[in-house]
Amino acid sequence: MMSVSDIMSGLMFIFIITLAIFVIDFLIASREHEEKMQELTQILSRFEENNRMRGAMLTDIQDALAKRSIEVDIDAEHGVLRLNENAVRFTTGSADLRGEQLERLEVVAKVLAEILPCYGSNQPDNGKCLADTQGKIDSVFIEGHTDNVPIGGRLAKKYKDNWELSADRAMFTYREVTNSQPLLASMLNTNAQPVISVSGYGEGRPVPGHAHPYPKNDPINRRIDFRFIMTPPTVTEAQNAIEGNL
């Protein structure tokens, strides 16, 4: 028969082996967790870098337009360049620009054509672009907006509501901008898709401080916004990093 000391020695040996296996598994798990945390940190850093780059780009566009006597507003947090009523002014119920207002839009198009192509995936080799900016823009939405005066009278024959009017303003702007500067229409993102598209919001997104409870002919809301979306990390990268930390 085995002695008590032999039994205890055997149990101690099993305990030591089990503890060693646990320690090894813990070290491996800790290393894998640290690697996943590093991946997640890198992805978050890319988001922050995208926001920083977008803010710098918006500031460059704003400064370039200011030198040409066109004042625009920017919202760096949301990536918006706003053509307010002092930049380009739409008349009530109209989606078209003429004369001086059209000329000002053409200046906007020229500035965009000088800066934006450096952020597309088909970046031109003109010696003016930085390698770090290539492929950074995923989408640019030309967004049409209106004031909250309802469509009526003769305009009702052309537009059912402000939503249609805002979409028409966005499409008019897109056509004029790309006709003036065809390079903008040729910009592609990393998926080889056109960067620029249009959207209309009617009266639904007034400028902060200009949400009127009653119909008001407010030129600041009759506007075009350019909304810039930067290329995010891939879904696979983000999903793997997040799932590894759940």
Rank of each mutant, 00 (worst) to 15 (best):
I224G: 00
I17D: 02
M1R: 05
R175S: 08
T59D: 03
G153D: 02
T234P: 06
D73N: 03
E203A: 10
I74M: 07
N240I: 07
T41L: 08
I70M: 09
S199N: 12
I7E: 12
K216L: 11
R227A: 00
T41Y: 04
D63E: 14
A109C: 08
I137R: 02
D125Y: 09
T178F: 11
T59I: 02
F22S: 09
E39Q: 15
D147Y: 01
D125A: 14
L184M: 11
Q42G: 05
M187F: 04
A113K: 12
T133L: 01
G135A: 01
P215L: 02
I224R: 02
R31S: 14
N189G: 03
A76C: 00
S186E: 09
D161R: 11
S69L: 10
D25P: 03
F172A: 10
H33S: 10
F47I: 03
L81C: 05
G209P: 01
G93M: 05
A241M: 08
T231K: 04
S45E: 14
D132F: 06
R175D: 14
W163I: 13
L246T: 11
G55A: 01
G144T: 10
A109F: 05
G135S: 01
K216T: 02
P213N: 03
I115S: 08
L155W: 12
K36V: 09
A131Q: 07
L102R: 14
L116H: 06
R104H: 13
H78D: 12
F226T: 00
T231H: 02
P117R: 04
P219A: 04
A109G: 11
T236K: 15
H145F: 12
G204R: 15
A20L: 15
D218K: 03
V198K: 09
S5H: 04
